[in-house]
Design a protein around this nucleic acid. Structure first.
Lengths: 229, 229
DNA sequence: CGAATTTGAACCAATAGTATACCAGAACTT
DNA sequence: AAGTTCTGGTATACTATTGGTTCAAATTCG
Protein backbone atom coordinates (compact mmCIF):
# COMPACT_ATOMS: atom_id res chain seq x y z
CA UNK A 1 0.00 0.00 0.00
CA UNK A 2 2.86 2.31 0.76
CA UNK A 3 5.61 1.17 -1.52
CA UNK A 4 5.17 3.50 -4.44
CA UNK A 5 2.85 5.98 -2.88
CA UNK A 6 4.31 9.40 -3.01
CA UNK A 7 1.85 10.97 -5.37
CA UNK A 8 -1.65 10.07 -4.28
CA UNK A 9 -2.20 10.26 -0.59
CA UNK A 10 -5.55 9.30 0.84
CA UNK A 11 -7.17 10.76 3.91
CA UNK A 12 -5.99 7.82 6.00
CA UNK A 13 -2.39 8.26 4.88
CA UNK A 14 -2.40 11.92 5.73
CA UNK A 15 -3.94 11.25 9.10
CA UNK A 16 -1.17 8.74 9.72
CA UNK A 17 1.52 11.21 8.73
CA UNK A 18 0.19 13.91 11.01
CA UNK A 19 -0.31 11.45 13.84
CA UNK A 20 3.34 10.51 13.47
CA UNK A 21 4.43 14.14 13.56
CA UNK A 22 2.58 14.52 16.81
CA UNK A 23 3.90 11.44 18.57
CA UNK A 24 7.37 12.27 17.35
CA UNK A 25 7.15 15.69 18.94
CA UNK A 26 7.61 17.89 15.89
CA UNK A 27 4.09 19.03 16.63
CA UNK A 28 3.81 19.70 20.30
CA UNK A 29 0.97 20.30 22.66
CA UNK A 30 -0.93 23.53 21.89
CA UNK A 31 0.83 23.96 18.58
CA UNK A 32 -1.38 25.05 15.76
CA UNK A 33 -1.32 23.07 12.56
CA UNK A 34 -1.01 24.96 9.34
CA UNK A 35 -4.39 25.97 7.87
CA UNK A 36 -6.25 23.36 5.90
CA UNK A 37 -5.62 25.23 2.68
CA UNK A 38 -1.87 25.08 3.27
CA UNK A 39 -1.87 21.45 4.31
CA UNK A 40 -3.80 20.71 1.19
CA UNK A 41 -0.91 22.15 -0.77
CA UNK A 42 1.94 20.54 1.15
CA UNK A 43 0.38 17.08 1.05
CA UNK A 44 -0.80 17.51 -2.50
CA UNK A 45 -4.38 16.69 -1.65
CA UNK A 46 -7.62 18.59 -1.89
CA UNK A 47 -8.89 20.46 1.10
CA UNK A 48 -11.74 18.04 1.57
CA UNK A 49 -9.29 15.19 1.98
CA UNK A 50 -7.24 17.06 4.53
CA UNK A 51 -10.51 17.82 6.27
CA UNK A 52 -11.38 14.13 6.53
CA UNK A 53 -7.97 13.36 7.91
CA UNK A 54 -8.30 16.08 10.51
CA UNK A 55 -11.82 15.00 11.45
CA UNK A 56 -10.48 11.52 11.98
CA UNK A 57 -7.61 12.78 14.13
CA UNK A 58 -10.06 14.83 16.13
CA UNK A 59 -12.18 11.77 16.89
CA UNK A 60 -9.01 10.01 18.00
CA UNK A 61 -8.27 12.87 20.35
CA UNK A 62 -5.01 13.97 18.83
CA UNK A 63 -6.26 17.29 17.69
CA UNK A 64 -8.89 19.89 18.38
CA UNK A 65 -10.28 22.20 15.77
CA UNK A 66 -11.84 25.60 16.38
CA UNK A 67 -13.78 27.32 13.64
CA UNK A 68 -12.24 30.53 12.42
CA UNK A 69 -9.13 29.87 14.42
CA UNK A 70 -7.29 26.73 13.48
CA UNK A 71 -6.53 23.16 14.41
CA UNK A 72 -4.54 22.56 17.54
CA UNK A 73 -2.60 19.67 18.99
CA UNK A 74 -4.22 18.17 22.06
CA UNK A 75 -2.09 15.19 22.80
CA UNK A 76 1.08 14.82 24.71
CA UNK A 77 3.61 12.78 22.73
CA UNK A 78 2.89 9.69 24.82
CA UNK A 79 6.20 9.52 26.33
CA UNK A 80 8.64 12.38 25.89
CA UNK A 81 11.38 12.42 28.44
CA UNK A 82 9.65 11.18 31.51
CA UNK A 83 8.06 7.90 30.63
CA UNK A 84 10.49 6.83 27.91
CA UNK A 85 13.02 6.74 30.67
CA UNK A 86 10.77 5.47 33.38
CA UNK A 87 9.34 2.68 31.28
CA UNK A 88 12.65 1.44 30.01
CA UNK A 89 13.11 -2.25 30.60
CA UNK A 90 16.36 -3.76 31.83
CA UNK A 91 17.04 -5.21 28.41
CA UNK A 92 16.41 -1.93 26.62
CA UNK A 93 18.83 -0.37 29.01
CA UNK A 94 21.50 -2.96 28.35
CA UNK A 95 21.15 -2.52 24.60
CA UNK A 96 21.56 1.20 24.99
CA UNK A 97 24.65 0.74 27.10
CA UNK A 98 25.99 -1.62 24.43
CA UNK A 99 25.63 1.21 21.98
CA UNK A 100 27.16 3.94 24.08
CA UNK A 101 29.86 2.55 26.30
CA UNK A 102 32.19 0.72 23.91
CA UNK A 103 32.37 3.85 21.82
CA UNK A 104 32.89 5.91 24.94
CA UNK A 105 35.95 3.76 25.57
CA UNK A 106 37.37 4.61 22.17
CA UNK A 107 36.84 8.31 22.72
CA UNK A 108 38.24 8.08 26.22
CA UNK A 109 41.45 6.74 24.70
CA UNK A 110 41.58 9.78 22.47
CA UNK A 111 40.79 12.47 25.01
CA UNK A 112 41.46 11.03 28.45
CA UNK A 113 44.03 12.73 30.69
CA UNK A 114 46.17 11.51 33.54
CA UNK A 115 43.93 13.12 36.11
CA UNK A 116 40.97 11.21 34.70
CA UNK A 117 42.86 7.94 34.95
CA UNK A 118 43.93 8.68 38.50
CA UNK A 119 40.36 9.26 39.46
CA UNK A 120 39.30 6.02 37.83
CA UNK A 121 42.10 4.26 39.63
CA UNK A 122 40.74 5.52 42.92
CA UNK A 123 37.31 4.24 42.00
CA UNK A 124 38.74 0.83 41.15
CA UNK A 125 40.31 0.69 44.57
CA UNK A 126 37.06 1.71 46.15
CA UNK A 127 35.19 -1.01 44.30
CA UNK A 128 37.73 -3.60 45.34
CA UNK A 129 36.98 -2.75 48.94
CA UNK A 130 33.32 -3.53 48.30
CA UNK A 131 33.38 -7.26 47.65
CA UNK A 132 30.69 -7.71 50.28
CA UNK A 133 28.97 -4.38 49.94
CA UNK A 134 26.70 -4.41 46.87
CA UNK A 135 25.35 -0.92 47.55
CA UNK A 136 28.76 0.66 47.94
CA UNK A 137 30.02 -1.19 44.88
CA UNK A 138 27.07 -0.08 42.85
CA UNK A 139 27.66 3.57 43.65
CA UNK A 140 31.32 3.37 42.82
CA UNK A 141 30.52 1.46 39.66
CA UNK A 142 28.20 4.21 38.47
CA UNK A 143 30.91 6.75 39.24
CA UNK A 144 33.48 4.71 37.35
CA UNK A 145 31.39 4.56 34.21
CA UNK A 146 30.68 8.24 34.46
CA UNK A 147 34.33 9.05 34.95
CA UNK A 148 35.06 7.08 31.83
CA UNK A 149 32.46 9.11 29.98
CA UNK A 150 34.00 12.30 31.29
CA UNK A 151 37.24 11.33 29.59
CA UNK A 152 35.54 11.91 26.27
CA UNK A 153 35.08 15.62 27.09
CA UNK A 154 31.78 15.26 25.25
CA UNK A 155 28.97 16.87 27.21
CA UNK A 156 26.28 15.25 25.13
CA UNK A 157 27.61 11.74 25.69
CA UNK A 158 28.05 12.36 29.38
CA UNK A 159 24.52 13.65 29.58
CA UNK A 160 23.20 10.55 27.84
CA UNK A 161 25.03 8.30 30.22
CA UNK A 162 23.57 10.27 33.10
CA UNK A 163 20.10 9.64 31.74
CA UNK A 164 20.88 5.93 31.82
CA UNK A 165 22.12 6.20 35.35
CA UNK A 166 18.79 7.75 36.25
CA UNK A 167 17.01 4.73 34.90
CA UNK A 168 19.29 2.49 36.86
CA UNK A 169 18.50 4.27 40.06
CA UNK A 170 14.80 3.44 39.90
CA UNK A 171 14.05 1.61 43.08
CA UNK A 172 12.93 -1.84 42.05
CA UNK A 173 15.85 -2.09 39.70
CA UNK A 174 18.41 -1.29 42.26
CA UNK A 175 16.99 -4.03 44.35
CA UNK A 176 17.06 -6.50 41.49
CA UNK A 177 20.58 -5.58 40.59
CA UNK A 178 21.84 -6.00 44.08
CA UNK A 179 20.52 -9.52 44.03
CA UNK A 180 22.94 -10.36 41.25
CA UNK A 181 25.87 -8.81 43.04
CA UNK A 182 27.44 -11.62 44.99
CA UNK A 183 31.11 -11.24 45.81
CA UNK A 184 32.12 -13.52 42.95
CA UNK A 185 30.36 -11.32 40.40
CA UNK A 186 31.82 -8.19 41.93
CA UNK A 187 35.22 -9.77 41.64
CA UNK A 188 34.73 -10.36 37.93
CA UNK A 189 33.57 -6.80 37.40
CA UNK A 190 36.57 -5.47 39.23
CA UNK A 191 38.95 -7.33 36.96
CA UNK A 192 37.15 -6.02 33.92
CA UNK A 193 37.19 -2.47 35.22
CA UNK A 194 40.92 -2.68 35.74
CA UNK A 195 41.43 -4.06 32.24
CA UNK A 196 39.36 -1.28 30.75
CA UNK A 197 41.30 1.34 32.65
CA UNK A 198 44.60 -0.16 31.54
CA UNK A 199 43.56 -0.35 27.91
CA UNK A 200 42.46 3.26 27.97
CA UNK A 201 45.66 4.27 29.69
CA UNK A 202 47.85 2.54 27.15
CA UNK A 203 45.77 4.10 24.37
CA UNK A 204 44.37 0.93 22.85
CA UNK A 205 40.93 1.94 21.66
CA UNK A 206 39.66 -1.33 20.22
CA UNK A 207 40.95 -3.37 23.11
CA UNK A 208 39.20 -1.06 25.56
CA UNK A 209 35.99 -1.24 23.57
CA UNK A 210 36.11 -5.02 23.41
CA UNK A 211 36.65 -5.44 27.10
CA UNK A 212 33.74 -3.09 27.68
CA UNK A 213 31.58 -5.29 25.49
CA UNK A 214 32.64 -8.31 27.52
CA UNK A 215 31.88 -6.40 30.67
CA UNK A 216 28.39 -5.51 29.48
CA UNK A 217 27.83 -9.05 28.29
CA UNK A 218 28.69 -10.30 31.75
CA UNK A 219 26.26 -7.84 33.24
CA UNK A 220 23.54 -8.84 30.80
CA UNK A 221 24.02 -12.50 31.65
CA UNK A 222 23.68 -12.00 35.34
CA UNK A 223 20.65 -9.86 34.67
CA UNK A 224 18.85 -12.53 32.65
CA UNK A 225 19.94 -15.15 35.15
CA UNK A 226 18.43 -13.06 37.91
CA UNK A 227 15.13 -12.48 36.12
CA UNK A 228 14.71 -16.20 35.51
CA UNK A 229 14.67 -17.01 39.18
CA UNK B 1 8.33 26.68 13.70
CA UNK B 2 5.86 24.63 11.77
CA UNK B 3 5.68 23.95 8.10
CA UNK B 4 5.23 27.65 7.62
CA UNK B 5 8.23 29.82 7.07
CA UNK B 6 8.69 33.00 9.04
CA UNK B 7 6.14 35.20 7.40
CA UNK B 8 2.89 35.30 9.30
CA UNK B 9 2.99 34.33 12.92
CA UNK B 10 -0.26 33.90 14.80
CA UNK B 11 -0.80 34.24 18.50
CA UNK B 12 -0.55 30.49 18.93
CA UNK B 13 2.74 30.39 17.07
CA UNK B 14 4.22 33.17 19.14
CA UNK B 15 3.02 31.54 22.33
CA UNK B 16 4.70 28.33 21.19
CA UNK B 17 7.97 30.11 20.49
CA UNK B 18 8.06 31.79 23.87
CA UNK B 19 6.97 28.60 25.62
CA UNK B 20 9.92 26.82 24.05
CA UNK B 21 12.31 29.59 25.03
CA UNK B 22 11.19 29.09 28.58
CA UNK B 23 11.36 25.33 28.75
CA UNK B 24 14.68 25.44 26.96
CA UNK B 25 16.06 27.82 29.56
CA UNK B 26 16.92 30.81 27.38
CA UNK B 27 14.30 32.63 29.40
CA UNK B 28 14.90 31.84 33.02
CA UNK B 29 12.82 32.08 36.13
CA UNK B 30 11.96 35.68 37.09
CA UNK B 31 13.35 37.06 33.86
CA UNK B 32 11.32 39.85 32.40
CA UNK B 33 10.16 39.53 28.84
CA UNK B 34 10.63 42.48 26.51
CA UNK B 35 7.72 44.91 26.54
CA UNK B 36 4.73 44.02 24.41
CA UNK B 37 5.48 46.84 22.02
CA UNK B 38 8.95 45.47 21.40
CA UNK B 39 7.81 41.88 21.04
CA UNK B 40 5.27 43.13 18.58
CA UNK B 41 8.11 44.45 16.47
CA UNK B 42 10.45 41.49 16.77
CA UNK B 43 7.76 38.97 15.91
CA UNK B 44 6.27 41.20 13.26
CA UNK B 45 2.81 41.05 14.75
CA UNK B 46 0.43 43.64 16.10
CA UNK B 47 0.46 44.29 19.78
CA UNK B 48 -2.97 42.74 20.20
CA UNK B 49 -1.61 39.47 18.86
CA UNK B 50 1.33 39.47 21.23
CA UNK B 51 -1.12 40.23 23.98
CA UNK B 52 -3.22 37.19 23.15
CA UNK B 53 -0.15 35.00 23.14
CA UNK B 54 0.92 36.30 26.55
CA UNK B 55 -2.57 35.92 28.00
CA UNK B 56 -2.50 32.33 26.85
CA UNK B 57 0.89 31.70 28.40
CA UNK B 58 -0.31 33.27 31.63
CA UNK B 59 -3.26 30.89 31.82
CA UNK B 60 -0.86 28.01 31.28
CA UNK B 61 1.26 29.24 34.16
CA UNK B 62 4.41 29.96 32.23
CA UNK B 63 4.32 33.65 32.79
CA UNK B 64 2.97 36.31 35.11
CA UNK B 65 2.16 39.81 34.01
CA UNK B 66 2.11 42.91 36.21
CA UNK B 67 0.53 46.09 34.89
CA UNK B 68 2.94 48.96 34.50
CA UNK B 69 5.88 46.71 35.20
CA UNK B 70 6.22 43.90 32.74
CA UNK B 71 5.74 40.22 32.07
CA UNK B 72 7.80 37.77 34.06
CA UNK B 73 8.73 34.12 33.70
CA UNK B 74 7.22 31.85 36.34
CA UNK B 75 8.23 28.36 35.32
CA UNK B 76 11.24 26.19 35.68
CA UNK B 77 12.79 24.92 32.49
CA UNK B 78 12.59 21.19 31.76
CA UNK B 79 15.56 19.74 33.54
CA UNK B 80 16.02 17.13 30.83
CA UNK B 81 16.69 19.49 27.98
CA UNK B 82 19.18 21.38 30.06
CA UNK B 83 22.40 22.85 28.84
CA UNK B 84 24.07 19.65 27.68
CA UNK B 85 21.78 19.44 24.72
CA UNK B 86 21.70 23.07 23.88
CA UNK B 87 25.43 23.60 24.03
CA UNK B 88 26.39 20.50 22.15
CA UNK B 89 28.84 21.18 19.36
CA UNK B 90 28.58 19.62 15.92
CA UNK B 91 31.55 17.36 16.65
CA UNK B 92 30.14 16.19 19.96
CA UNK B 93 26.99 15.38 18.14
CA UNK B 94 28.78 13.37 15.50
CA UNK B 95 30.65 11.35 18.11
CA UNK B 96 27.40 10.58 19.83
CA UNK B 97 25.84 9.46 16.59
CA UNK B 98 28.90 7.29 16.00
CA UNK B 99 28.15 5.59 19.26
CA UNK B 100 24.44 5.12 18.80
CA UNK B 101 23.64 4.56 15.18
CA UNK B 102 25.88 1.66 14.16
CA UNK B 103 24.56 -0.30 17.10
CA UNK B 104 21.05 0.74 16.21
CA UNK B 105 21.68 -0.90 12.85
CA UNK B 106 22.59 -4.16 14.52
CA UNK B 107 19.46 -4.11 16.64
CA UNK B 108 17.34 -3.10 13.67
CA UNK B 109 18.50 -6.28 11.96
CA UNK B 110 17.30 -8.25 14.95
CA UNK B 111 13.92 -6.62 15.49
CA UNK B 112 12.95 -4.87 12.25
CA UNK B 113 9.73 -5.86 10.48
CA UNK B 114 8.57 -5.66 6.91
CA UNK B 115 6.38 -2.66 7.60
CA UNK B 116 9.41 -0.83 8.99
CA UNK B 117 11.39 -1.57 5.87
CA UNK B 118 8.56 -0.45 3.63
CA UNK B 119 8.42 2.82 5.44
CA UNK B 120 12.17 3.28 5.10
CA UNK B 121 11.88 2.46 1.43
CA UNK B 122 9.34 5.25 1.07
CA UNK B 123 11.70 7.62 2.78
CA UNK B 124 14.54 6.60 0.48
CA UNK B 125 12.34 7.43 -2.47
CA UNK B 126 11.41 10.73 -0.93
CA UNK B 127 15.07 11.59 -0.39
CA UNK B 128 15.92 10.68 -3.95
CA UNK B 129 13.39 13.23 -5.11
CA UNK B 130 15.22 15.87 -3.11
CA UNK B 131 18.55 16.14 -4.94
CA UNK B 132 18.03 19.89 -5.20
CA UNK B 133 15.96 20.42 -2.08
CA UNK B 134 18.24 20.41 0.99
CA UNK B 135 15.40 21.23 3.35
CA UNK B 136 13.17 18.46 2.10
CA UNK B 137 16.07 16.03 2.11
CA UNK B 138 17.02 16.98 5.61
CA UNK B 139 13.55 16.30 6.94
CA UNK B 140 13.32 12.96 5.20
CA UNK B 141 16.81 12.09 6.40
CA UNK B 142 15.86 12.72 10.00
CA UNK B 143 12.78 10.58 9.51
CA UNK B 144 14.86 7.81 7.97
CA UNK B 145 17.25 7.62 10.86
CA UNK B 146 14.37 7.67 13.28
CA UNK B 147 12.57 4.94 11.39
CA UNK B 148 15.73 2.88 11.65
CA UNK B 149 15.76 3.47 15.38
CA UNK B 150 12.12 2.45 15.60
CA UNK B 151 13.10 -0.92 14.19
CA UNK B 152 14.90 -1.65 17.43
CA UNK B 153 11.63 -1.47 19.37
CA UNK B 154 13.75 0.10 22.08
CA UNK B 155 12.01 3.17 23.47
CA UNK B 156 15.10 4.36 25.27
CA UNK B 157 17.23 4.30 22.13
CA UNK B 158 14.54 6.01 20.11
CA UNK B 159 14.25 8.67 22.75
CA UNK B 160 17.99 9.27 22.69
CA UNK B 161 17.99 9.65 18.95
CA UNK B 162 15.14 12.13 19.27
CA UNK B 163 17.24 14.18 21.63
CA UNK B 164 19.93 14.29 18.98
CA UNK B 165 17.41 15.33 16.38
CA UNK B 166 16.40 18.16 18.67
CA UNK B 167 19.96 19.40 18.77
CA UNK B 168 20.13 19.19 15.04
CA UNK B 169 17.06 21.32 14.63
CA UNK B 170 18.57 24.32 16.37
CA UNK B 171 18.40 27.14 13.91
CA UNK B 172 22.01 28.01 13.17
CA UNK B 173 22.82 24.37 12.67
CA UNK B 174 20.16 23.81 10.15
CA UNK B 175 21.60 26.66 8.22
CA UNK B 176 25.13 25.29 8.43
CA UNK B 177 24.02 21.83 7.46
CA UNK B 178 22.18 23.02 4.42
CA UNK B 179 25.37 24.65 3.21
CA UNK B 180 27.00 21.24 2.99
CA UNK B 181 24.11 19.68 1.13
CA UNK B 182 24.87 20.10 -2.53
CA UNK B 183 23.25 17.62 -4.88
CA UNK B 184 26.44 15.55 -5.12
CA UNK B 185 26.54 15.05 -1.36
CA UNK B 186 22.87 14.22 -1.25
CA UNK B 187 23.46 11.65 -3.97
CA UNK B 188 26.15 9.96 -1.88
CA UNK B 189 23.92 9.91 1.17
CA UNK B 190 21.11 8.38 -0.85
CA UNK B 191 23.31 5.50 -1.97
CA UNK B 192 24.42 4.90 1.59
CA UNK B 193 20.88 4.96 2.90
CA UNK B 194 19.86 2.36 0.34
CA UNK B 195 22.81 0.18 1.29
CA UNK B 196 21.94 0.41 4.95
CA UNK B 197 18.33 -0.48 4.27
CA UNK B 198 19.36 -3.45 2.16
CA UNK B 199 21.80 -4.74 4.74
CA UNK B 200 19.18 -4.51 7.43
CA UNK B 201 16.66 -6.21 5.20
CA UNK B 202 18.95 -9.09 4.43
CA UNK B 203 19.77 -9.37 8.12
CA UNK B 204 23.47 -8.61 7.96
CA UNK B 205 24.14 -6.77 11.20
CA UNK B 206 27.83 -6.04 10.85
CA UNK B 207 27.52 -4.97 7.26
CA UNK B 208 24.73 -2.58 8.16
CA UNK B 209 26.73 -1.19 11.06
CA UNK B 210 29.80 -0.68 8.89
CA UNK B 211 27.93 1.16 6.18
CA UNK B 212 26.42 3.35 8.87
CA UNK B 213 29.92 4.15 10.10
CA UNK B 214 30.91 5.10 6.56
CA UNK B 215 27.79 7.20 6.28
CA UNK B 216 28.57 9.07 9.46
CA UNK B 217 32.19 9.48 8.40
CA UNK B 218 31.02 11.09 5.18
CA UNK B 219 28.78 13.41 7.13
CA UNK B 220 31.59 14.30 9.52
CA UNK B 221 33.90 15.11 6.63
CA UNK B 222 31.49 17.48 4.96
CA UNK B 223 30.88 19.05 8.34
CA UNK B 224 34.54 19.77 8.99
CA UNK B 225 34.97 20.90 5.41
CA UNK B 226 32.10 23.34 5.86
CA UNK B 227 33.37 24.75 9.12
CA UNK B 228 36.81 25.46 7.58
CA UNK B 229 35.37 27.81 5.00
C1' DC C 1 -19.75 -1.24 -14.29
C1' DG C 2 -20.76 0.84 -9.63
C1' DA C 3 -19.64 2.47 -5.10
C1' DA C 4 -16.63 5.11 -2.66
C1' DT C 5 -13.39 8.61 -2.52
C1' DT C 6 -11.21 12.66 -4.04
C1' DT C 7 -11.38 17.02 -6.24
C1' DG C 8 -12.19 21.86 -6.96
C1' DA C 9 -14.87 25.68 -6.29
C1' DA C 10 -17.83 28.80 -4.27
C1' DC C 11 -19.90 30.86 -0.24
C1' DC C 12 -20.78 31.45 4.89
C1' DA C 13 -19.91 32.46 9.72
C1' DA C 14 -16.63 32.68 13.30
C1' DT C 15 -12.39 34.19 14.85
C1' DA C 16 -7.90 36.25 14.53
C1' DG C 17 -5.17 40.04 13.37
C1' DT C 18 -4.11 45.21 12.33
C1' DA C 19 -3.84 49.88 13.48
C1' DT C 20 -4.73 53.53 16.51
C1' DA C 21 -5.78 55.99 20.46
C1' DC C 22 -6.16 56.64 25.31
C1' DC C 23 -5.90 55.27 30.35
C1' DA C 24 -3.73 54.12 34.89
C1' DG C 25 -0.24 52.37 37.51
C1' DA C 26 4.92 51.45 38.04
C1' DA C 27 9.49 52.78 37.55
C1' DC C 28 12.85 55.90 36.74
C1' DT C 29 14.97 60.85 36.56
C1' DT C 30 15.71 65.13 38.22
C1' DA D 1 8.92 65.11 45.89
C1' DA D 2 7.39 65.98 41.25
C1' DG D 3 7.35 65.00 36.68
C1' DT D 4 8.56 62.19 32.82
C1' DT D 5 8.78 57.82 30.68
C1' DC D 6 7.65 53.22 30.31
C1' DT D 7 4.56 49.45 31.20
C1' DG D 8 0.39 46.73 30.75
C1' DG D 9 -4.97 47.26 30.21
C1' DT D 10 -8.76 48.55 27.37
C1' DA D 11 -11.58 49.95 23.51
C1' DT D 12 -12.79 50.25 18.66
C1' DA D 13 -13.32 49.82 13.72
C1' DC D 14 -11.77 47.54 9.92
C1' DT D 15 -9.46 43.68 7.30
C1' DA D 16 -7.69 39.07 6.70
C1' DT D 17 -7.77 34.41 7.64
C1' DT D 18 -9.81 30.08 9.06
C1' DG D 19 -12.82 26.26 9.61
C1' DG D 20 -17.74 24.74 8.10
C1' DT D 21 -20.72 23.56 4.34
C1' DT D 22 -22.40 22.23 0.08
C1' DC D 23 -22.33 20.32 -4.57
C1' DA D 24 -21.26 18.48 -9.02
C1' DA D 25 -17.56 16.58 -11.69
C1' DA D 26 -13.52 13.62 -11.84
C1' DT D 27 -11.01 9.78 -10.24
C1' DT D 28 -9.95 5.47 -8.04
C1' DC D 29 -10.59 0.75 -7.15
C1' DG D 30 -12.92 -3.60 -6.31
Amino acid sequence: MNALADQKLGAADIAALIRREISKGSLQLHDRLPPERVLSETYGAARGTIRKALTHLEKEGFVETRAGSGTYVVHKPDETSASAIENATPLELMDTRFALEPHICRLAVLHGRHSDFDRMEDLCNRMEDCLDDPVGFSDADTDFHRALAECTRNGLLIWMLDQIANVRSEDDWTRMRHLTLDSRTIGIYNVQHRQILNAVRTREPERAANIMKEHLETARLSLTRASET
